[in-house]
Design a protein around this nucleic acid. Sequence first.
RNA 1: GGGCGUGUACCCAAGUGGACAAAGGGGGCAGACUGUAAAUCUGCUGGCAUCGCCUUCGGGGGUUCGAAUCCCUCCGCGCCCA
Length: 444
Amino acid sequence: MPIDFLDELQWRGLLHQCTDEQALRAHLADPQSNPRSAYTGFDPTADSLTIGNLVPIMLLVHFARAGHTPIVVMGGGTGLIGDPSGKSAERQLQTEETVRGFVDAQRPIYENVFRGAAAYGDAQIPSPRILNNLDWLAKLGFVEVLRDVGKHFSVNMMIQKDSVRDRLHEREQGISYTEFSYMILQSYDFWRLYEHEGVTLQAGGSDQWGNIVAGADLIRRNIAAFGASEDHQPDAFGLTVPLVTKTDGGKFGKTESGAIWLTANRTSPYAYHQFWLNTSDDDVVRFLKIFTLLPKDEIDRLTDEVQTNPGAREAQKTLAHHATALLHGEDEAVACERAAKALFSGEIADLPEATLRAVLAEVPSSDHSVASLEGDGVATLDLLIETGLASSKRQAREFLAAGSISINGRKLDGEANLGSSDLLHGSLIAIRRGKKAWHLTHWS
RNA sequence: GGGCGUGUACCCAAGUGGACAAAGGGGGCAGACUGUAAAUCUGCUGGCAUCGCCUUCGGGGGUUCGAAUCCCUCCGCGCCCA
């Protein structure tokens, strides 16, 4: 039994606003005999996406779970122009090669999430179709665009748009004709997909509302101009997801060390898992709804757990597991949990070598000469500096005096020298400062 | 171009000849407590060294036994006038 798309979005808090909700509900009511297609566009501005981008992807997943057809449109073309929405300054134009590289790097993210969603239990959900708007935008002729598309856009309306208006009145940073035209391109995408792919719904982040409505508008005007549609309702809808916020006012998706990305080369699965695990009690239920596919009764149960037994952090653990599994796969999620357990308990000395190496794989490491362990051995003081765990001898002494340093999980009190008897598996010494800072030393 | 200000450590900010490696706050790091949370408490926060030494108060130069502090000069920033 497929889910009801709009109901699902609503209770999950994924629905920010949409055009004509009643008509949209009716439009989507019968996926069996009338499956619909929806698309979300993503402009490639980097070689990866951040967890903020995960929200509209989840929306497409729910669309698929409801029995409809999701389409991802990668902005290989629009990415060459630059969306002024939410930007206070003109963007640096990227070269075509760069954007192409970004497109290729981002493609697996969509595939991974949908694979993860299917693995979670919705085996019937299809993979999304992934298109690149460069394929049609690159072929457009300037005259053609001005006549067929531009005629439907009123400049009076376009300059009302917040992102454009701000730039017009901000004397420091104007807006180029290029970025001003962005809305027209995105609208054309929608029209194009409506015509050729039967797409009737565009979804996106809340900052995309203006662009989405403009697209729906273009479709309506074109229908009016060229006749077409058998019924008189223009079957083009728009829908946005909310901006995810944190209760404490901090920016969602950012840590001290930077943004949380959706590819392992930028944010390791372990760091990703830790990010979710550290969600505050105030946010965890909302995030469970948005970033996992857990059913309502399970989330209700976890909501109670947060209330009655917050110390167990079952909700955070569940969130971390499912969010990690969704993106990186179940195996990675399990590995992250195992690594977290070992690293936080500090009990690593008894782990088999292969497990130990796997657990510490993401920790900074350095190579040292095993010969130096002979005789008096190596002073931990010096080693702390060599490994970067302390920035000066004075600081290293401070850590040692405070009992902040552990060697292979054994707490060190005071200064000491390390010898070959401290080697784990004949070649490794793991140093830990405080609770979270680890460093693995290789000796050979 | 003229006038008045201002520049201090990661950030804000006191300090106007010696007691200044420089108050206070924030941030950061560590310790205790805890739930890898929040709040709270404690310590550290230029470097090297077992009393001590070395390098720092926008840059350079000078006065002085002694300069963040006084003088000269250059540079940066802010406000007002043109």
